[in-house]
Design a protein around this nucleic acid. Structure first.
Lengths: 342, 342
DNA sequence: CTCCGTAATCGAAGCGCTTCGACAAGACAG
DNA sequence: CTGTCTTGTCGAAGCGCTTCGATTACGGAG
C-alpha cells in the first residue's frame, strides 16, 4: 500500500553491525555506549538518512514529540502579534526537537479532549485565554501539561504567561511625562474589547492612571506624576476616531500627551491631531501600544510599547518543555513590555 | 512514567464483547459489520470516550492523519491573508479528520525531508512558493503528496493553486472603467516585491494593462477599454507614497481611476488624494487589491479585490486529500478573485 | 440433504520503536 | 585466583492499532 518502505532502525543497526536497541540508546543517550560504537551508529544514521518513525516512537515511548498550539485564528486578536507568536513558538519548539500541531480555538474543549486522548501531542499551548474560558476547565480535567497565554478567572494550578499590561500602561505614561507632558490621556479600544477580556485592556488603563497626580506634588521621591491623566475608550472606525479625538482635545485644552492602545485607530488619530493643528513630536506627544509596524507606518514615526510576542512564545514553549520533563515552572509569569523610541 | 493508561481499543472490545479487530472494522468501515454489533461498539466507544492512539494507528496503517503546512511565518506575505489561509486550512483539514502540523519556511528542504522520513505527516501544503524555490526540488525528490500555493518555474508534475492575479488586475481595470474612468493607473508594490516573485505582482500589472486602449475604439465588441492606463511601482513608506501619488497626478492630469496593489500604502494614498483636492467616490475612483479590512478601514470605504484566502485553503487541502486517496487532481488551479463593492 | 457462497466475526501477525533484564568482559579488591 | 562491580551490548517483550487469512453460521441452489 505504501511505496518505498523507508529506512528503519533495523537498517541502521545492520549497517553499523549492532543491535537495534544499541542504535536507540545511541540516539537517546539513555545508556552509555562506547565512543567507537556510537560513531559507527551515527555514521550509519547519516549515510542512510535515518529519521525515527514518529508513530512508532510515540507508541513505544509515550512521547509524541509534538505539542499543540491553539490559536484564535478566526478574529479578534491582533494579527501581527499572533503571527510573531506562532512563528516564535514553532521556532522554539523545534529547538527542543518538538513539532507543533496547529488548532483553532473553535475546536474548543472537545478538540483538546481529542488530541489528549489520542496521544497525538504531549502538551498544549493555549493562546488568548479569556477570563471565563471553557477550554481552561478542559485543560484541568485532562491533566495534559499546558501553558496558557492570558489569565483565566481561576488560574490556580495552571501555568500562565502574559504581557505585564499594567507595566505597559505605566511605561506609556512615564514616557509622556518624561517628554514634559503634564496632562496626558489614554485612547483605548472600543467598549466591546473591555467587556470581552477583563484584564488586558483594563490593566493598561490602570497602569496608565497610576501616574495620575491629581494635584499631588510632581517632584520628590518616587516616579514623577502627571498633573492630570484620563482614559477614554474609542471605537475602531475612522469617523468615530476623529470624533473621539476632537472631543478629547476640546474637553482638555492642556492635553499634550496621548497614548493610543488601539492599533487600527492610529492613522486616524494622527490625522485628527494634524487637523487640530497639533504638531506631533514637538508640541504634542503620542505613544502607541502595539506592534512596531504600527508606529513605523505613520508620519512621523511614533514610539511604541510592543507586545514582545516572540519572547512570550519562547517563554511559553520553554515552560511547557520544562513541564514535560517533570520540572517545576512558575505558575504565573509576567513579561515586561518594551518601549521603542523612534 | 505516564499517568492514567488511557482507554485502548481492547477496552472498547471488552466492553462491547467483541474482538479488537471488530472494533477497528466498525470504526473504519472497511468490512461489513452487523448493525447490532456496530451499535454496541459505538456505544462502548462513546461511553469510554475512546479515541484511537494516533501513533499506533500511524504505525499500523501507514497513515498519520496529519498534514504539514509550511508557512513563511517570518516576513513578507500579507498577514491577514496568511491567517485566513491558515485558519481555512485547519478547518478544512479537520473536516477530513486530519490535523495540521505547522512548519516555518525557514526549516527549508531539510525540514521537509525530516517530516517525510519520520512519517509524521501524510502530505504537505507549501505556501508562498516562489519561482526558484529550493523546497520544490525537495518535494519532488521526496515524493510526498503535496500541494503548492504559487507557481514555481517548473511546475510539471506538481499540483499548484493560486489566485488568478491576471484576472484580478483586469477586474480592477474593468471596475474603474465601469465607473466612467478613461485614464487609469495601477499603483503597485515596491520594486523589491516585483523582483522576488515573478508572477504575482507582474500578473496583476499585465492584467490591468490588458485593458489599455491606447486610442483604440472604446466601444464595439469585447470589453470596454480605457483610453490610457499606466502602472507604477511604489515603496511602502508614507513619504514615498505621498510623493509617488503626487508625481502620478502631476504627470497624468486626466487620471480619474486608481488601483492600489500595496496594502500599507492605502491610507497614505487617500491622504495624498485628499491633499490634491480629489474627492474619492465622486470625481475620482479607487479600488484596492488586498483583504477586505484594508478597504474598510479608510474613509471613504473602498471597493477591494481580495485574495480569497479561505477558498484557496479549502481548495489546496481538498486537492491534497484527494491525492492522499489516490485520486486525480488538476495540476494547476487558478482561483477567481472577488471584487467587493462598498 | 449436501454443497457452496456470502456475511459476520475472530485471532494472530506485524508496523518500528523503546526499554527492561540478561549477560559477557574487564577492572579491581580481597 | 575467586567474587563483586561496572560498562557496553544484546534479545525479547511489548506499545495500540490495522489487516489478512481463517472460521463459523446461515441460506439458497442443485
Amino acid at each position: 500500500m505504501k511505496g518505498p518502505r523507508g529506512v528503519t532502525i533495523a537498517d541502521v543497526a545492520a549497517r553499523a553491525e549492532v543491535a537495534a536497541s544499541t542504535v536507540s540508546y545511541v540516539l537517546s543517550g539513555k545508556r552509555s555506549i562506547s565512543p567507537a560504537t556510537a560513531q559507527r551508529v551515527m555514521d550509519a544514521v547519516a549515510e542512510l538518512g535515518y529519521h525515527p518513525h514518529a508513530g512508532a516512537r510515540s507508541l513505544a515511548s509515550r512521547r509524541a514529540g509534538v505539542i499543540a498550539m491553539m490559536l484564535p485564528l478566526r478574529d479578534g486578536m491582533h494579527l501581527p502579534v499572533l503571527m510573531q507568536f506562532a512563528s516564535g513558538a514553532v521556532t522554539e519548539a523545534r529547538r527542543h526537537d518538538q513539532d507543533v500541531l496547529l488548532m483553532t480555538a473553535d475546536e474548543g474543549p472537545a478538540g483538546l479532549a481529542r488530541v489528549a486522548a489520542s496521544s497525538i501531542v504531549d502538551g498544549l499551548i493555549l493562546m488568548d485565554v479569556e477570563v471565563r474560558d471553557p477550554r481552561v476547565e478542559a485543560v484541568r480535567r485532562l491533566g495534559l501539561p499546558s501553558v496558557l497565554l492570558g489569565f483565566p478567572a481561576d488560574a490556580a494550578g495552571l501555568t500562565c504567561v502574559d504581557l505585564d499590561f499594567t507595566a505597559a500602561g505605566r511605561e506609556c505614561a512615564d514616557y509622556l511625562i518624561g517628554r514634559g507632558c503634564r496632562d496626558i490621556a489614554l485612547l483605548g479600544a472600543s467598549e466591546a474589547v473591555y467587556e470581552r477580556r477583563t484584564g488586558f485592556a483594563e490593566r493598561v488603563r490602570s497602569g496608565f492612571l497610576d501616574r495620575r497626580g491629581d494635584g499631588r506634588a510632581a517632584a520628590g521621591p518616587g516616579p514623577r506624576l502627571a498633573e492630570s491623566a484620563a482614559a477614554v475608550p474609542c471605537p475602531d472606525d475612522p469617523v468615530s476616531v476623529q470624533r473621539t479625538v476632537k472631543e478629547l482635545l476640546a474637553s482638555r485644552p492642556d492635553l499634550t500627551g496621548l497614548a493610543v492602545h488601539n492599533e487600527p485607530a492610529v492613522p486616524h488619530v494622527m490625522h485628527a491631531l494634524a487637523d487640530a493643528g497639533k504638531c506631533v513630536g514637538e508640541d504634542f506627544h503620542v505613544v502607541v501600544i502595539g506592534p512596531d509596524e504600527v508606529g513605523e507606518r505613520v508620519h512621523p514615526p511614533l514610539p511604541s510599547v510592543l507586545v514582545p510576542a516572540e519572547r512570550l512564545a519562547e517563554i511559553a514553549v520553554g515552560h511547557l518543555m520544562r513541564k514535560l520533563d517533570g520540572l517545576e515552572v512558575p505558575e504565573s509569569t509576567l513579561v515586561e513590555p518594551q518601549l521603542t523610541v523612534r
